[in-house]
């Protein structure tokens, strides 16, 4: 029998194969939502979908795109803002 806290769906279930050949269910906390573009509210790309303690292990260049406004605006919105700056 699983522990009572694992019977609710706050934990996600992962079926794994053990070295002996049996399969077992592992329980983990759910993944967070992806960050969104500040302008158009779409989900940002190039960002790993990991929990906080795993994101801390990554380098800076693996957490967000290396572009200007990377991790804040999506690629299309960053193009538009740079164009506006150039034309002003």
């Amino acid at each position: 029998m699983p522990q009572p806290k694992f019977k609710s769906r706050t934990y996600r279930r992962i079926s794994t194969k053990l070295p002996g050949g049996n399969s077992k269910i592992h329980y983990e906390k759910r993944k967070p939502e992806l960050p969104k573009c500040a302008n158009c509210k779409k989900e940002l790309k190039g960002i790993p979908k990991l929990r906080d303690y795993k994101m801390r292990r990554l380098g800076i260049s693996k957490k967000r795109p290396e572009r200007a406004f990377g991790g804040y605006l999506c690629s299309e919105c960053s193009r538009q803002t740079i164009k506006k700056e150039a034309r002003a």
């Binding site: 290396e66 572009r67 200007a68 690629s75 193009r79 740079i82 164009k83 700056e85 150039a86």
Partner: peptide, 10 residues
Amino acid sequence: CIKIAGRDAR
């Protein structure tokens, strides 16, 4: 020119 896309953007 100003570059718009890629790691050299802006």
